[in-house]
Write a protein that binds this DNA or RNA. Structure first.
Lengths: 112, 112
DNA sequence: CTTATATGCATAATTCACTTATGTATAGGT
DNA sequence: ACCTATACATAAGTGAATTATGCATATAAG
């Protein structure tokens, strides 16, 4: 598990990008997908996830669709047009930040 | 300038690594060095810097030496033995975090 | 049959690293 | 005189997270 400190500020970027890559998803499904993609290193907690999804929706980046699965409620989230352009911005910003950090910390960063 | 959100959680790592690479330094000098290394993209504010240095000192990672430069006070910071091992841990942790984020965001990260 | 685990959403209280603002003081340029 | 740079420090406020709690269905285990 990664130090939660480092994760701060990256949650919205993760949510937007995962929704871009995997389309319509519901909250719990996102936590499982992120867990999988991160090899169990990033475990999203509900207390962080749901308020963050709500905020992205309130900001117009996401839209929702509530579906009844038998007696269970599922709330699907997907990107709005505005949200799609946000994904690019956020990911670009993150990559640039990492490059800067690479220079400051004098470390080589590459995929394993 | 990078979004300050992303910087959260990386400040102590930056301070420790810069002190490792450049030896004994004082607060203001660190801000200038980081500004330089980041091409002006990371501007440490005093309100973040000093409390963070104090905390690293309280935690035993840094030791200090106060020097009078004429009538001006300068407080030099350097790594303790314990601090040196911390640097490695923190930098390794950061690099691993970046790798994980690369997988989750599906982006290629490399030095430009 | 009741207990634990997984699925699924949500919000309130709290924490904590930061930002913003302020304070003190010396030095040098215009 | 005034502005900028140098140099430290702390207090108030913000905001995104953690932690804790609540509600509810489904399923497997013992």
């Amino acid at each position: 598990m990664h130090s939660p400190e480092l994760l701060k500020g990256t949650l919205q970027t993760i949510l937007l990008k995962v929704l871009k890559d995997h389309g319509k998803m519901y909250g719990y499904e996102i936590t499982q997908r992120v867990k999988e993609l991160s090899d169990g290193r990033i475990l999203l907690t509900e207390g962080a996830l749901y308020p963050s999804l709500h905020k992205l929706e309130a900001d117009g980046h996401l839209k929702t669709e509530t579906v009844m699965m038998g007696k269970r409620v599922r709330k699907y989230y997907s990107l709005t047009t505005e949200g799609k352009s946000q994904v690019k911005e956020r990911v670009t910003e993150f990559v640039e930040f990492i490059r800067t950090m690479g220079n400051v910390l004098q470390v080589e960063i590459s995929r394993q």
